[in-house]
Design a protein around this nucleic acid. Structure first.
Length: 1120
RNA sequence: GGGGGAGUAGCCCAGUUGGUUAGAGGCGCCGAGCUUAUACCUCGGAAGUCGGUGGUUCGAGUCCACCCUCCCCUACCA
């Protein structure tokens, strides 16, 4: 076919990584993604909302799992013609960025930050975000993720300008033209419609809308300042919310310290209390007992000690004598001497007395607490309201004094004697020393327990009395949700959120229960943090009159500002600039400053369904894209983080679900089954994985992984995934090789096949039917967010394509094959491959694109120039579907397997032709026509196949009693019945009943199975019976030998490194008589001329044993 | 501490309302076969006291009790 372009030659061993880079360049050059968006611009909307990735470090392979899903579902929906937003998101604000910036600067405390300057520090935080946003953008592009990306170099330019002169005016290219502003404000405007690109949660709009949300919470009375003892990280100088607490539990060893507290009214007697936090003893206020628990007084030497009876053996050291037993209630009110009564802080706190007895100084006493248990310590609990939440609640209920010993950095405050000024982590030993000196020490021993740590920096938390801001979640009612009245739901945000959760499709389903469970147990949401880089909480708490005002947006702030607006204007709404603004107190008119706290970062991510969809500035747009059709993130953790914050905020603002369906997946682990850790040497960086395994291999692994289970990610798993893809590549490479040799090209893509396939052979029609079925199946699966089933179906298809279609069609594509049949083979294989790669394109965008370029673009230029611009192939392939044909083919293939098993059992190699096979096919409305039988005959190498009606003569009948039916009835007779069945001692009766071991069972009680009679070449499977005629005539033997010879010649060709179409000279020496007639055929198959005489020395030679004699063969490329 | 889940072949694991010979699948191993798609594929095989102990039953991987180990969720008990 002169003048027609051929396929490009393909290496059988592809460099997948290099190929991926070529494809990226191709997409770039052809603006493929932009054209896809244009192509779908009028299509139905599919709203995907990207959960923001924290722009704080390079992306890891665990991100690649989620991003694979995000990209593959976006690509799939694009192939269905759907219009999408393609907006990636970066999470920008919060402690995690601060901690890294601090580390870079070598800072160890908040004081360092203050000294450095908050403005400078915040700028560094912004810069860090821009740095890693640029980096992650590049990595995501490398992964093949199609999003509306910013130019990473523009992000880096803004980074630099922020550092050198944030106020300098510059211009960036937006989707609708250039946008000019100061560098700082451009950074604050990233992701908006005029600037385009990814959204950044530090953006002005994002912060502004959170202000609006908080103002709404305030309007409804849900925002409040709490005064409470909270978990606190002394290193970070910030309170830790309930959400964050859950992330940070670790095992830790603390001193388990038992202390004697003398009872002045009972000379010589003392209470024993136990604590794992010695520093809190400074702030001891009371000792709690369980009123109904038994307590005892024991004598140890001169000591008289009180403790819980149940704790005697474990709490005491050494021998003891029990003197007295009393219930806890009889101990109530006892005065005792505290461990640190002499401290000024203690005296001062106690001087005011209690709420109920304000006149006289408070003294330590025994109080009642129902929560006191008998499992640990002494059953007398040390109570320090300034150092524990439960202690605080108890103290509050009883009106007890509160002693708060720590400042925000965990340093002991003044008034604590020699402990003052020391770090809370270093005071355990001084406390113990003090107790020993005072005669209060009883014992200390290491105690291991799970203890909360800071999720970010790993510091053990302390409990500290602080003011923090909360959003109330509303009451928890003690009854089922179904019984709640509308008024009760209206009064409780948590139940409103639950109703929203019910409207969402959770995949996997357990997510629904998890979220509800979290909401049930959720305490009020602590949204404040005493830090620097984050959402500036727009709360104005009047020191003069106590009025709290919450500002709902930047414009409102400008209107309300009484001073400092000029110093804020031109800046993003961050500290320290926004702190300059004061408003007038609506209560008393005094100028009020913003509280200095920043916001919980999940507020930043939670507002995204509003901020990124332009809820305020373009309500029509928002209404079109809200709620999102789909989000996907890793499940662990997000129930209480992103999912929760989105649900809470959307419920407050709209009482609507922010997304319709959510797909969750688990965690990426290393191949050794452990979490990846750099220090364990089992971590794999994303860039390394991309460079070494290639991103398609990674995507294939991720798409195949069961999302509800952690994935074991590593090089071996990657090799396995690559092998699967290489099978496809081999088919492709084979196809291209032979199509080139034959000069075959399609004229209209898969249209060739659609036009003419009706007349093609069963193999062709079968593979096209399979391809059609695959496209339909994978489409349905991906619609259901089931990538596992999709990849499984694809894998099975590739296997069919390679091991059956191509295996049986290879001869059809060789030189000398029937031209019409050969073209049909090429056309059907080509169509199947093209349909397949379109079906795989969302999952494997690079491999499929590379193949598409060659299979389609290089030969049919009129078609779309990217596989990603083609439509989902299910519809166009549907006419090829022929399910009866697929069922028949499955039977043939099963028959082939049985025949192979038979050959193996009888030691009859497949190369040896046999005269006949008999085949009995179970009657399931299935017939095997000539062509099907021909496939079977060719594959198992038999001269003829005869279909017999019934294979039962060849088989033994065995009886399998159906135990679930007869077991209950026959009881103890079962063993003998089963033995009889196993041994075949069966009596069959005409009505279908049988007798076994003297027991007659009805036809329904047994299953009669056919098994091959031992010693015959018969195989059976579910009614399919195969018999081989293993009688060998001399002619058959000779034919087998000839095939053996041909095989040997082919091996030699390969050993000699010859090309597929090289012609050879062939020398054969010592050929047995009988084979001679076949020699010409062998020569034909191997492109050989039979040469006479001695083989030359430069020929490649070998020996083989044929018909009992040694045959020597040699080959050499024919000259010319 | 509370709640839930899991322990089956060298490894990852399936195992229906209890049914007698414990296996679908994947990796690995051994053997054979097929093939110029040349370490791809196919067929066959080996190997397990089903975490332990006791119980119910004609019969237990499966049900019950206790114990051991691991994981997840949850929890500021001192």
């Amino acid at each position: 076919m002169p003048g027609v372009a051929l396929f490009q030659a393909v290496s059988p061993k592809p460099d997948l990584v290099a190929q991926e880079h070529d494809v990226l360049a191709l997409w770039d050059a052809r603006r493929t993604f932009a054209r896809l968006r244009a192509q779908n611009a009028e299509g139905p909307r599919w709203s995907f909302l990207d959960g923001p990735i924290t722009a704080n470090n390079p992306m890891g392979v665990h991100h690649a799992w989620g991003r694979t899903y995000k990209d593959l579902y976006q690509r799939f929906h694009a192939m269905s013609g759907e219009h999408q937003r393609y907006q990636n998101g970066f999470d920008c604000q919060g402690l995690w960025v601060e901690v890294n910036v601090e580390r870079d600067l070598g800072f160890t405390s908040k004081r360092d930050i203050e000294a450095y300057g908050i403005a400078e520090f915040v700028t560094l935080c912004k810069q860090r975000v821009l740095t890693y946003a640029a980096r992650q953008t590049e990595q995501s592009i490398r992964l093949g993720m199609w999003m509306d990306w910013n130019d990473p170099n523009e992000l880096r330019r803004l980074h630099d300008l922020l550092g050198s002169d944030a106020a300098s005016v510059t211009t960036i290219e937006g989707p609708d033209g250039p946008v000019t502003d100061s560098a700082e404000m451009l950074v604050g405007r990233l992701g908006m419609p005029d600037t385009g690109g990814s959204y950044f949660t530090f953006s002005n709009e994002n912060n502004d809308l959170i202000w609006g949300f908080l103002a709404e919470c305030h309007r409804r009375g849900w925002l409040y300042k709490g005064h409470d003892t909270m978990p606190w990280c002394a290193r970070c100088g910030t309170g830790i919310s309930q959400t964050e607490m859950n992330e940070g539990y670790q095992d830790r060893e603390d001193p388990g310290l038992t202390v004697r507290l003398p009872l002045p009214d009972r000379p010589g007697e003392a209470l024993l209390v136990w604590t794992t936090t010695p520093w809190t003893l400074t702030s001891n206020v009371a000792a709690a007992v369980g009123p109904n628990l038994p307590y005892v007084k024991v004598r140890q030497g001169a000591d008289l000690l009180w403790l819980g009876k149940a704790r005697l053996k474990s709490a005491l050291v050494g021998p003891f004598e029990v003197l007295e037993e009393r219930p806890g209630r009889e101990l109530l009110g006892w005065r005792y001497l505290g461990p640190y009564d002499e401290l000024p802080a203690v005296r001062e706190a106690f001087a005011g007395g209690t709420r109920d007895e304000p006149g006289q100084p408070y003294e330590h006493r025994v109080i009642e607490w129902s929560e006191v248990g008998e499992d640990e310590g002494t059953s007398i609990v040390h109570i320090a309201p300034g150092c524990g939440a439960e202690d605080f609640a108890l103290g509050k209920a009883l009106g007890l004094p509160v002693i708060a010993p720590l400042d925000e950095a965990g340093i002991v405050l003044d008034g604590f004697g020699s402990l003052s000024g020391r770090d809370v982590r270093d005071v355990a030993d001084p406390v113990i020393e003090h107790l020993k000196r005072e005669g209060r020490f009883y014992r200390v021993e290491p105690y291991r327990h799970r203890y909360p740590h800071c999720w970010r920096c790993g510091t053990p938390l302390v409990f500290r009395l602080v003011d923090e801001w909360f959003i109330s979640m509303g009451p928890v009612y003690d009854k089922p949700r179904a019984d709640l009245s509308a008024a009760e739901v209206d009064a409780s945000l948590r139940y409103q959120i639950m109703d929203v959760v019910d409207r969402i499709r959770w995949i996997p389903e357990f997510g629904h229960d998890r979220e509800l469970d979290w909401l049930r147990n959720m305490q009020d949401w602590m949204i404040s943090k005493k830090r620097y880089w984050g959402l500036a909480l727009p709360i104005y708490d009047c020191a003069a009159c106590g009025t709290v005002e919450v500002i709902g947006g930047r414009d409102e702030l400008r209107d309300r500002a009484v001073e400092g607006w000029d110093r804020f204007e031109g800046h993003t709404p961050h500290r320290p600039w926004v702190d300059e603004v004061r408003i007038d107190c609506p209560g008393c008119g005094a100028p009020v400053e913003r509280i200095r706290d920043v916001g919980n970062p999940w507020l930043d991510a939670g507002i995204v369904p509003f901020s990124t969809l332009h809820y305020r500035e373009d309500p029509d747009y928002w209404a079109k894209w809200f709620p999102a059709d789909f989000i996907t993130e890793s499940f662990p953790g997000q129930f209480r983080n992103w999912f929760y914050s989105m649900l809470a905020m959307s419920t407050v603002l709209r009482r609507e679900e922010p997304f319709r369906s959510i797909f969750g997946y688990a965690l990426v682990f290393a191949e050794d089954g452990r979490q990846m850790h750099k220090s364990w040497g089992n971590a794999i960086e994303f860039d390394e994985a991309a460079d070494r395994m290639g991103v398609d291999v990674m995507r294939w692994m991720f798409a195949k992984a069961r999302p509800e289970e952690n994935i074991a990610f590593g090089w071996h798993a990657a090799d396995e995934a690559r092998r699967e893809l290489l099978v496809l590549w081999n088919v492709y490479s084979f196809f291209v090789t032979y199509a080139r040799l034959a000069g075959w090209t399609p004229t209209e893509g898969i249209g060739d096949a659609i036009e003419r396939a009706g007349t093609w052979s069963v193999l062709d029609r079968w593979i096209l039917s399979r391809a059609a079925g695959l496209a339909a199946d994978v489409g349905a699966r991906l619609h259901e967010v089931d990538a596992v089933a999709a990849t499984r179906a694809i894998g099975a298809f590739i296997d069919d394509l390679s091991t059956w279609f191509l295996r049986r069609s290879r001869g059809r594509m060789r030189a000398g094959a029937n031209p019409g049949d050969r073209d049909a083979a090429f056309a059907s294989l080509h169509a199947a491959l093209v349909s397949l790669i379109r079906t795989m394109a969302p999952i494997l965008p690079f491999l499929t694109e590379a193949m598409y370029q060659n299979l389609v673009v290089s030969v049919v230029p009129a078609l779309p120039d990217s596989v990603h611009l083609t439509e989902w192939p299910a519809a166009v392939m549907a006419p090829h579907r022929d399910e009866p044909l697929e069922r028949s083919m499955a039977t043939v293939r099963r028959a082939v397997e049985l025949a192979r098993t038979l050959r193996a059992q009888s030691g009859m190699r497949t190369r040896q032709p046999l005269a006949r096979a008999w085949l009995a096919v179970p009657d399931r409305g299935m017939t095997l026509d000539e062509a099907m039988l021909g496939l079977f005959a060719d594959e198992v190498n038999v001269k003829s196949v005869e279909v017999i009606a019934d294979g039962s003569d060849l088989l033994d009948r065995r009886v399998k009693p159906l135990l679930p039916r007869i077991g209950k009835r026959l009881g103890a007779a079962i063993p003998s019945i089963m033995t009889a069945a196993r041994e075949g001692s069966v009596e069959f009766h005409p009505d279908g009943s049988v007798t076994l071991a003297g027991v007659t069972l009805g036809p329904d009680d047994v299953e009669v199975q056919a098994t091959p009679r031992p010693g015959t070449a018969v195989a059976e499977d579910d009614g399919l019976v195969i018999v081989l005629d293993t009688e060998l005539s001399p002619a058959l033997v000779a034919e087998g030998d000839a095939r053996e010879l041909a095989r040997a010649v082919q091996d030699l060709r390969r050993a000699a490194g010859l090309q597929l179409d090289d012609r050879i000279d062939l020398w054969v020496e010592g050929l047995p008589e009988g084979i001679a007639p076949h020699l010409e055929a062998v020569a034909g198959d191997t492109l050989a001329e039979i040469a006479d005489g001695q083989a030359p020395s430069d020929a490649t030679s070998a020996e083989l044993v044929l018909g009992g004699g040694t045959v020597r063969i040699a080959v050499r490329r024919a000259p010319g």
